[in-house]
Design a protein around this nucleic acid. Structure first.
Length: 185
DNA sequence: TTACCGATCGCA
DNA sequence: GCGATCGGTAAA
């Protein structure tokens, strides 16, 4: 099993979002290991994407999206829910991939993180983990185990105003752990 | 300093 | 269909 490194994330958000499907998300929380297979992602771009946090230029919050790839961008939304993103694209260029759904593999004890909010909660991700680098020493990283026998479906993103949506959502066809709200067309 | 609102979820 | 609840952002 190979850990995904800097070069994997140092590419356009669309590419990373697509290739992250089927990979394994690993979270080491105080000695406990949580793992899950990535089954659903969304890509967020920079200035060309009005739905992205980075769509209106650089601010304090989104500055991490302009920084080094392979860094966690975790944001509190609607006052309740954290969203787990991975920064992509080379430094200076905004881009991120949102994790919307994973299939639980180990350490998740019956939890079904089918949705970005629940996912972050199940993996114990919060404000503290924002801006952490996805280098194994920080306890958050992605790994590759050769799983690639699946079909990728591309649709519009979820929760985005009409008119500024783009087909940047990727998921594994037929997977039970793709979020339900996300399954609608 | 204040007012507004969002990449959501669970319950009715 | 709606309310919960908080931090970033822009305007004053």
């Amino acid at each position: 099993m190979k850990v995904l490194g800097f070069n994997f994330f140092n590419r356009p958000a669309r590419t990373v979002a697509k290739e992250l499907l089927g990979k394994i998300f690993v979270r080491n929380f105080r000695g406990k290991i949580f793992t899950g297979r990535v089954v659903e992602t969304e890509a967020y771009l920079g200035s060309e994407d009005p739905a992205s946090h980075a769509g209106n230029g650089l601010t304090k919050r989104n500055s991490v999206m302009f920084g080094k790839p392979g860094v966690a961008y975790i944001y509190l939304c609607y006052g309740f829910h954290f969203m787990m993103n991975v920064v992509t694209d080379k430094e200076g260029l905004a881009g991120a991939v949102l994790l919307r759904g994973v299939e639980p593999l180990s350490g998740l004890k019956g939890k079904v993180p089918n949705g970005p909010g629940k996912l972050a909660k199940a993996f114990k991700l919060g404000k503290k983990e924002n801006r952490l680098s996805l280098v194994p020493k920080n306890g958050i990283y992605f790994a590759e185990d050769g799983y690639k026998d699946f079909k990728i479906v591309i649709t519009g993103r979820i929760g985005i105003k009409e008119g500024q949506n783009m087909p940047l959502r990727y998921y594994i066809e037929g997977n039970k752990y793709v979020s339900k709200t996300g399954r609608r067309k």
